[in-house]
Each structure stands twice: as structure tokens, then as C-alpha cells.
């Protein structure tokens, strides 16, 4: 007996986990949940490993029919989720009964939400991960990179979860303006001083052109005058500046190597926050050194152990 049947989905409703590692030298990208913080909380609420397979729902458009009684969890964006007629708030677990319909209407706050199930959703590990990467034909329910679609059935590993409550104070504040920390890169000296001032003092607007590979920021034109680059590995969260001067933030499904100059790379927490920005949203970049970013990151992970 299955757990959930997909009645309606969009190409942005995908099985994801912590991503695919150790294969990037073969040209295989990282993949994985764009908001790893929300994925972590969704799993934590059920006592799952933090990187267990979840459903990533971007902007809504998903409808699931429950096939049996269960306890599920939701964390991330408020996509106006409903269980039958009852609104479902994120950052908590909830009980479902056989026959109930779970609907994600559309974004009210944030862009992506994560649905977790006891023990994690079942999906074959492909190159070590079930992360769906459409472009590469890897991951997902059948392993071939297909997003969820009507008629798919989802099931999970465990039976009775260890349901936990998340202190409200720990919920990421998605209503606050996004301030994204960026570790400056080695090519920073190739940008003219005006561009550097603008990069960290201007308001940036998230462009509508964007996907899981990367998103474009609209704002002042950044002028790179340094030398051209030989293609090299692209770090996670890299902020590239192509010749048109509009920065492009590379996300989990980015290509593995590339040759555009980089302003730097967003921290892991900033990458998670960016994943919750919707097109048209304003954001700021803030310079940060790698050491303090690492310390902050470790402190964040401590929450999941201590709460």
C-alpha cells in the first residue's frame, strides 16, 4: 500500500536530499534541497536523519492524496498548504488520514517548502543520492531525473515517527529582508572600485530568469577588468559576473566547471535564505570572511543537536 498519490504536480516538485558528492570530477553536479535549513527542520520534526529524502515544492502546484494514516512534516515557505479545507502552517508535523487531500496553492511567504515523511521518502540512490537533476537524468522516484508527476506514488521508510516540536523562536524569519553573506573571492581585485561599492551597497532584485542551476540578480552593472579565466571548478553558492555585468548566483544544480569571474560565494546559510526569495524580491549582499562564516555555520548545526 502506498503512502501518497500525486494528483497534480509541476516540474518544480521534486524529490531531493542532501545532494550528490564525490562525483563532480565526472561532470556530475551536486543537486539536493536548495534550502537545506528547511529540509533539515522538516526531517528533524520527525526524528529523521537531517538529509533524508524529502519533496521540494517550489511555488506550489502540488496536490497529493493520502492513502493511509500517517504523520508528516512541513518546513520552509508558506505555500498556502491545505489538508482538505484546513490550512497547514509550515515548521510543524501533522497527522493525515486516508483519503485526505494535501494541496499547495501558491506562495504567501517564501518560495520553497519541504515535505518530510517518517524515515524519509523511498527512492533509489543514484550515484549516492536520490536528488532529482532533470538536466542530467539522475535521481527522483525512478532514478532517471524525472520530477514528480500525476499518478506517481510516494512511500516512506519508517512507521511511527518521533514527532518533535520546533521552538517558534528558531523559525527562520522569511519576512525579514534578505541579507546574504558572501565570502569574497580571489578575483575581487579585478572589479573596479565603483562596482565593489555597488555590490555591497545596492539593492539587488531577484530576476524572473532562474532555475535550480542559478538565479540572476538585477541591479547596477558590475565592471570586471581583470584577466580572463581558464575554466575551473565552480564553488557552491558562487556569484559569477558574466560580461553583461549582472551577477548570477550558482545554485545546487550548477555546471561543475566554468570560466566567468566571481565576486565570491554565498555562505551556506545565505544559499538557504536565497532559495526562499521569490522573483522580484529585493536583497542585499554583505561581505563576510570564511572563518566567521564557518563558525556561524557550526553554531547553526548545534541547534539540531540541542533543541
Amino acid at each position: 500500500m502506498s503512502g501518497l498519490v500525486v494528483e497534480r504536480a509541476t516540474p518544480l516538485c521534486q524529490l531531493q536530499d542532501a545532494g550528490r558528492f564525490g562525483v563532480r570530477h565526472l561532470g556530475v553536479t551536486q543537486g539536493g534541497a536548495l534550502d537545506w535549513v528547511a529540509m533539515g527542520w522538516a526531517n528533524w520534526l520527525l526524528g529523521n536523519p537531517l538529509g533524508a529524502p524529502v519533496v521540494e515544492v517550489a511555488l506550489g502546484g502540488l496536490r497529493l492524496v493520502c492513502q493511509r494514516d500517517a504523520c508528516l512534516a512541513l518546513a520552509g515557505a508558506d505555500l498556502q498548504a491545505r489538508l482538505d479545507d484546513q490550512p497547514l502552517a509550515p515548521w510543524r508535523h501533522f497527522a493525515v488520514r486516508r483519503g485526505q487531500v494535501l494541496d499547495f496553492i501558491g506562495p504567501r511567504l517564501g518560495a520553497r517548502t519541504y515535505l518530510a515523511a517518517p524515515g524519509g521518502f523511498l527512492a533509489p540512490a543514484v550515484l549516492g543520492s536520490c536528488a532529482t537533476v532533470v538536466r542530467e537524468g539522475l535521481g527522483g522516484l525512478a532514478g532517471g531525473g524525472r520530477p514528480l508527476q500525476a499518478g506517481d506514488t510516494l512511500d516512506w521508510r519508517g512507521a511511527a515517527p518521533v514527532a518533535r516540536e520546533m521552538p517558534a523562536a528558531l523559525r527562520p524569519d522569511l519576512a525579514a529582508p534578505a541579507r546574504l553573506d558572501l565570502v569574497v573571492g580571489a578575483q575581487i581585485g579585478g572589479f573596479d572600485s565603483r562596482s565593489l561599492f555597488d555590490a555591497f551597497n545596492a539593492d539587488w532584485t531577484l530576476d524572473t530568469r532562474g532555475d535550480r542551476m542559478g538565479v540572476r540578480l538585477q541591479g547596477p552593472v558590475l565592471d570586471y577588468r581583470g584577466e580572463g579565466l581558464v575554466s575551473e571548478g565552480i564553488p557552491p553558492g558562487a556569484v559569477q559576473v558574466p560580461p553583461d555585468g549582472q551577477p548570477f548566483v550558482l545554485l545546487n544544480d550548477r555546471q561543475t566547471i566554468g570560466g566567468y569571474p566571481r565576486l565570491g560565494a554565498l555562505t551556506l546559510l545565505a544559499q538557504a535564505r536565497l532559495a526562499q526569495c521569490v522573483p522580484g524580491e529585493r536583497l542585499r549582499l554583505r561581505a563576510r570572511d570564511a572563518d566567521s562564516a564557518q563558525r556561524e555555520h557550526r553554531r547553526y548545526l548545534e541547534r539540531w543537536r540541542q533543541v
Binding site: V183, A186, A290
Partner: peptide
Amino acid sequence: EVVAMDALM
């Protein structure tokens, strides 16, 4: 070079 909080070049 430090290229990200979790990457070196």
C-alpha cells in the same frame, strides 16, 4: 585561494 566558506582553489 579561498573561493567559498567551504572550498579552496
